[in-house]
């Protein structure tokens, strides 16, 4: 099945990818961001927070986006 995957790491990615039936959000994250920590990303499925064991479905939109973007005066 295909899902839309959005990620900013590397060259950035925003396109459809094939995933196996029954793939969970956690498994998908581990496969796509093998060296990343979930805590460093806002992980959403169809624009909503997702549980680690949520099973992905055909057509889902999965995004891993950066968190804690903060600036300050010197």
């Amino acid at each position: 099945m295909k899902i839309l995957y959005i990620n900013n790491d590397g060259g950035g990615f925003a396109d459809y990818v094939e995933v196996a039936e029954g793939t969970t959000v956690q498994a998908f994250f581990a496969a796509r961001v093998p060296h990343g920590k979930p805590h460093d990303y806002l992980i959403r499925v169809n624009r909503q927070p997702a549980a680690a064991d949520q099973v992905l479905r055909e057509g889902d939109r999965v995004s891993f986006t950066p968190v804690k973007i903060e600036g300050a005066l010197p």
Binding site: L4, I6, N8, A14, L42, R44, R47, R61, S63, T65, P66, V67, K68, I69, E70, G71, A72, L73
Partner: peptide, 19 residues
């Protein structure tokens, strides 16, 4: 006046909108 902190959900929404 000393700082700016982006909202994480808004950043994710921004990504969705631009995609």
């Amino acid at each position: 006046p000393l700082s700016v902190v982006f909202d994480d959900v808004a950043v994710a929404d921004f990504f969705d909108q631009q995609v």
